[in-house]
Design a protein around this nucleic acid. Sequence first.
DNA 1: TAGATTGTTAATCGATTAACAATC
DNA 2: TAGATTGTTAATCGATTAACAATC
Lengths: 227, 227
Amino acid sequence: MLPPHLVSPRTLQRLPLYVSYLHSLPKDALYISSTEIAAQLGLHPVQVRKDLAAVGAQGRPRLGFEVQTLLRLLTTYLNGGTQHSAVLVGMGHLGRALAAHLGFAHYGFTIQAVFDNDQNLVGSRLAGYEVQKMENLVPLCQTLKPAVGIITVPAEEAQGVCDLLVQAGVRVIWNFAPTHLAVPKDVTVQDEDIAASLALITKQILGQQPSLVPISRKEESVRDGIL
Amino acid sequence: MLPPHLVSPRTLQRLPLYVSYLHSLPKDALYISSTEIAAQLGLHPVQVRKDLAAVGAQGRPRLGFEVQTLLRLLTTYLNGGTQHSAVLVGMGHLGRALAAHLGFAHYGFTIQAVFDNDQNLVGSRLAGYEVQKMENLVPLCQTLKPAVGIITVPAEEAQGVCDLLVQAGVRVIWNFAPTHLAVPKDVTVQDEDIAASLALITKQILGQQPSLVPISRKEESVRDGIL
DNA sequence: TAGATTGTTAATCGATTAACAATC
DNA sequence: TAGATTGTTAATCGATTAACAATC
């Protein structure tokens, strides 16, 4: 397998796409070709082969790639073989959705603690976690040393929460609040940017912006006849 | 102003970033330079200038760009000057978060109707919307003709919901379910891909993957002294 | 065998960055 | 004026796609 750091960010972001597509295949599918994956996902076959090669996958001419082997390679690669810890701040709807449903464990993440500033929530159990008060944030993070801090508070409160996390030693922030966060150099913020997606969707609707997966390349889509 | 379709997807996705950064500026800031924007957001100054030029912004040497004018240009450009309609299927936590908090209106989107298959929710008001039963999905969409269908149901139900939306004539799908959706050629699916973000975050943590906004380019970050 | 598929090298394409003249 | 900044052209960089030999 190639060293992980040789995989480009663009490739890296496509890998989960392959995982979810492979999961959607019928249980009895033994092999899948890059041609088929590409057609279904609207990608170029060579791109798919290069992406898969990047995680060390090897296909067989005429047959394609072994589905289960491929799945194992991708998931192992994606979570780096280790479990990562996280704390989540803001147990509104978004926080609860993330904590409960979105399958962090599947991708190698464990939420260690959740926080909220609403006294009505503090102490209660939500999505399987006992909600901690904000006063506990810094001391608990200093003890737990989570790899990631997830921010799901309203935009106005995000910078304050971010500052606390940074103060407590968290060096990677996953920000769901629709606002820009300022951080020291050694801290990384990744914005989960719904606004960026909305921008693409708007242009999609207006028909002025070619989609990231141009429709003209989806000629081979298999689904047409179904509906 | 340049024709909107000349703006590349990458630029398009950065525009909301500028909007949120401009909003975070002090009220009395009249001008902002591309240099400062770039330093704060970890981008290259020339890239910022090109992005802003793409929406027709003009700066003044020595001063920079007028903040309010820039904001107006960006927001007008981003929502295309029109309001777009949407329906949302799945009023769990994620659906409620989207419907209630994430400021669609701000970006030119209006949710016309929300749906759920949970009989306990149907008929109740959530986030200001009366939850419709799934049986109403196709007929209502045929009447309302929403520009976008937002899918916030569990992965297992997403394909079924997607098929219904397509059947009802919806041509743009915004998919929050962590699964691959198969659609006819003339339908676009945009995945809100939390797994892709997690992949980047994992590599970030492992320190094996250079971030999309390389830390080495944040030298000029102003925040350092604050904490 | 014939034909579909992999895997790799080379060419193309698009986006970012460097260089620099113009402006105030 | 001097110096910071804009805006544009050219160079660089990285990612995608084309071409094709190797495989089964």
